[in-house]
Amino acid sequence: MMRQMLAIAAKELRDGVRNRWALAIAGVLAVLALAIAWFGPAASGRVGFASLGATVASLASLAVFLVPLVALLLGHESVVGEAERGTLLLLLAYPLGRRTLLAGKFLGHAALLAAATALGLGGAAAVLAAAGAAGEGLWPAFTRLILSTALLGWVFLALAYAISAGAREKGRALAGALAAWFAFVLVYDLVLLGTLVAAGGRLPPALFGALLVANPADAFRILNLTGLEAAEALGGLGAVARGPLVSAPVLAGVLAAWLAGLLGVAFHRFARREV
């Protein structure tokens, strides 16, 4: 079973490398990371590396938009795409469990996403280190950023699998994936802010913090702000990041819980799917 799962994962990984998905993601992340590092302070009238805190905070804000979108696009065809081209019918006729098939595909895509993230952000960190632009804190901060970005990517990859496992057509899966991206990355914060304003700012801080952390995108953002001086400059979100609710393990736990829950939904939907 493990060998079959690894064979499927290796195929997905090879496909991603061959069709240049991984390279494109890594390239975009690296270029944007370097651009943010150097041109981030341009609004204040100067160009060049400002501070590690500001760079990591900006990169977290970039990743929270880009990585979920990439993960959703990468995973939305995982099941429905195989079904549409008929290969699912054949795969399920092999001596292969449905869980093994889905786990293998997820493993391959997750490895692809993690490798692209490590290559993109790690490459940018290497350039910054080589230019002597940041001090000793560079690698720990970037390591945390890379790991949490990969985790964020996996959460949204699992969401894409859950959508794909229940979809009848690729078009519907894509629409679902984009709607999910809007909901988690854009709309959730807007609704939360609106609620806070409507309540006249009287929402208990603990409840507001919990609601904020419940969204994996916000949990990721806060995870990367905790411990940064720059967090103070980010207003409400920075205040939450420095609050008692949000230790790094709790935030990582929230992301892990989302990952486990969404994978559970994906497996359940795939198990019930008729070929």
Binding site: R85, G86, T87, L89, L90, A93, Y94, P95, L96, G97
Partner: peptide, 18 residues
């Protein structure tokens, strides 16, 4: 099912190939 499927080779209509 695994043992049974291991004893079957299947070619669906319009061979679904990569």
């Amino acid at each position: 099912p695994r043992a049974a499927k291991a004893a079957i080779g299947y070619l669906p209509e319009q061979p679904p190939l990569y």
